[in-house]
Amino acid sequence: MLTTQVAWILLAASVAAESLGTAALNLSSGFTRLLPSVLTVACYVTAVWLMAIATKRIEMGMAYAAWAGSSAALTAVIGIAWFGEALSPIKAIGICTAISGIVLLNLSGNGS
């Protein structure tokens, strides 16, 4: 039986897979490099599959909002840490806003 806690863990794994897939997409050079291209597709398929399982227990709107916001924030952090993208004050505020929105959604009590 899928518990709410396990569903959230699966959703977090989905976020990680999606963000890793996006990093691999950047490395694929427009799908011209085989290994990063295969990794991109595998990660995206895994991300959607894990999210589909998580939405058996987490409301779809809540799951998608948490997934999209977390993925965007994590992908931005990966871009800064591994690809040397700039961290402007506006970008930092945006990342914090995404994270704050996810926290507020979860505090609303509609997470399961």
Rank of each mutant, 00 (worst) to 15 (best):
M1N: 09
L2W: 12
T3P: 00
T3E: 06
Q5P: 01
V6E: 09
V6K: 08
V6I: 12
V6M: 09
A7T: 07
A7V: 08
I9Q: 05
L10G: 07
L10E: 08
L10Y: 07
L10V: 01
L11H: 09
L11T: 09
A12K: 01
A12G: 08
A13R: 00
V15N: 10
V15Q: 07
A17E: 03
L20Q: 07
L20M: 12
T22E: 10
A23K: 08
L25N: 13
L25Y: 13
L25F: 14
N26K: 13
L27F: 10
L27G: 08
S29A: 11
S29I: 05
G30W: 10
P36E: 06
P36C: 06
P36K: 05
P36G: 05
S37N: 06
S37F: 06
V38L: 15
V38S: 07
L39Y: 01
T40C: 08
T40R: 00
T40P: 07
V41E: 03
V41H: 03
A42C: 13
C43Y: 05
Y44M: 05
V45H: 01
T46Y: 01
T46F: 02
A47W: 03
A47M: 06
A47N: 05
W49Q: 06
W49C: 09
W49G: 01
L50Q: 06
L50H: 05
L50C: 12
L50Y: 07
M51L: 14
A52T: 15
I53W: 14
I53A: 12
A54H: 10
A54M: 10
T55H: 09
T55G: 04
T55W: 10
K56Y: 06
K56F: 08
R57I: 03
R57F: 00
R57E: 10
I58P: 02
E59I: 00
M60T: 08
G61S: 00
M62T: 12
A63F: 00
Y64D: 01
A65N: 00
A65C: 05
A65H: 00
A66Y: 01
W67Y: 15
A68M: 11
S70T: 07
S70Y: 02
S70C: 13
S70L: 11
S71K: 05
A72G: 12
A73N: 09
V77K: 05
V77Y: 02
I78N: 10
I80T: 09
I80M: 14
A81V: 15
F83Q: 10
F83G: 06
F83Y: 13
F83I: 05
G84D: 02
G84V: 01
E85H: 10
E85G: 05
E85F: 03
A86L: 05
A86T: 11
L87S: 04
S88E: 02
S88M: 03
I90C: 01
K91Q: 07
K91T: 12
K91W: 07
K91H: 06
A92Y: 04
I93G: 12
I93C: 11
I93M: 12
G94L: 09
C96L: 14
C96T: 13
C96A: 15
T97C: 14
T97W: 10
A98Y: 06
A98T: 09
A98C: 15
I99E: 05
I99G: 07
I99R: 04
I99L: 15
S100Q: 00
I102V: 13
V103W: 06
L104K: 03
L104I: 13
N106P: 07
L107C: 11
S108G: 14
S108Y: 13
G109K: 12
N110E: 15
S112K: 15
